[in-house]
Amino acid sequence: MGMNTQQQLRYWGIAAVVFLLFMWVMGQAILPFLLGAAIAYFLDPVADWMERHGISRLAATALITAGVVLLFAAILFFAIPLVAGQIRDLASEVPDYISTLQTFLSQRFPGFLEEGSIIRRGLVSMQDTIKNGGVAVAEGILNSSLVLIDIVIILVVAPVVSFYMLLDWDRMTARVDDLIPREHLETVRDLAGKVDKVLSGFVRGQLSVCAVLGIFYAVALALVGLKFGVFVGLFAGLVSFIPFVGSITGGILSIGLAVVQFWNDPIWIAAVAIIFVVGQFFEGNVLTPNMVGGSIGLHPVWLMFALSAFGSLFGFPGLLVAVPTAAVLGVLLRFAIDEYKKGRLYQGTVQRPDAAE
């Protein structure tokens, strides 16, 4: 390995450490800027399409920004109050659900609730805890979370950042391209193109899958009459960003609620289970193949590890950079493996029969 390569690895390593330290020190302060940059990145193809159809970059950016602001406003004023209300109602009714569960267990499995049994003590303790502070805790989470992430600042700063970054996106990428060492220009461009393909293909596609699944689950669960079905359905769609997790988590939560609510009418419990079976089938055979594709290179386990690691280290800002970082590392790892297979360490000094041919 030449000195030039060693120096470049050292510089890139230093840059990675500086980036991680910057994320750790700045924390929530950079959240609006990360959101703005993410919005600009994902909407740049829309702006490019509008430019190709005769609309100026400034006008295209203004129209796109206005549309995003209106969408966020609609979510803020309509969806959030609905979900928040369901969370509060769920917290207030959990003690009743536990009582119903105790009745069900005592009738069907009386041995489980004998005096002094672990299950009985656990249910009573859970019920007392929720009665004493469950609603207050739920309301505190809903209220304090908005304060902690400074939602007002985000709603003001993020659209402004996205507007200016979307307006100057092509100039910024050209400036970065101009700073790439000329010796490795084509390699870096090729890697950047692969990262963009993986990242845009996965995130844009997976967000579309999440939206479709969330709407499907929320509407279907509401139609069968499941209490808090809207909240559970939207939650299941949201966490579907991690493949399989949304359906499994939402299914367990929904079926648990259905057992308590419909324990005398098993047909509705089966209906709730069927909803998630249909959703899982639809996701695996229609949505994901058509919206995400099978060649993006982000394995679900690798994605879950990235989200867990960056979320633990940097909080919510870490979740925003987890997927891009996972995409970059995945592309770089595949590139390193390809280079390794071309080298002497892998091929050795003896020429292989297929190479001679």
Rank of each mutant, 00 (worst) to 15 (best):
N4Q: 11
N4T: 13
Q6M: 09
Q8I: 09
W12D: 11
A16K: 00
F22R: 00
Q28D: 12
I30P: 00
P32L: 06
P32M: 06
F33C: 03
A38Y: 05
F42V: 08
P45V: 12
E51W: 00
H53D: 02
L58Y: 07
L63I: 07
I64C: 03
V69E: 02
L71W: 15
A73D: 04
I75H: 10
F78W: 13
P81D: 01
V83A: 12
V83S: 01
Y97L: 05
T103W: 04
F104R: 02
Q107D: 14
Q107T: 10
P110N: 10
P110D: 07
E114V: 12
E115N: 04
R120H: 06
R121Y: 05
S125L: 07
K131G: 08
K131H: 15
G133I: 10
A136I: 13
G140W: 00
L146K: 13
V147Q: 15
V147T: 15
V152Q: 10
I153Q: 09
L155K: 11
V156T: 10
V157C: 10
A158L: 11
V161N: 09
F163G: 01
Y164N: 02
D177I: 10
I180C: 11
I180L: 12
P181I: 07
R182L: 13
H184N: 14
L185R: 08
L185H: 13
L185Y: 13
T187E: 10
T187A: 14
D190F: 11
K197A: 13
K197H: 11
S200F: 13
G201S: 12
G201Q: 09
V203R: 02
S208V: 03
S208C: 04
L221K: 05
A222F: 15
L226K: 08
L226D: 03
G229T: 03
A236C: 05
L238G: 01
V239F: 15
I242V: 14
I252S: 03
L253R: 03
L257T: 06
A258P: 02
V259I: 15
V260S: 07
F262E: 05
W263H: 13
P266L: 05
I267F: 14
W268I: 05
I274R: 07
F276N: 07
F276L: 08
Q280W: 03
N285F: 06
N290P: 04
M291S: 08
S295D: 13
S295R: 08
H299C: 04
M304C: 04
A306G: 11
L307Y: 00
S308K: 03
S312N: 12
F314P: 03
P317V: 12
P317Q: 10
G318V: 00
L320S: 06
V321C: 09
A322H: 01
P324L: 03
A327C: 14
A327I: 04
V331Y: 06
L332M: 13
F335W: 08
D338G: 12
D338C: 06
Y340P: 04
G343A: 10
R344N: 04
T349R: 15
V350I: 13
V350K: 15
Q351M: 12
Q351T: 04
P353M: 15
D354G: 09
E357A: 02
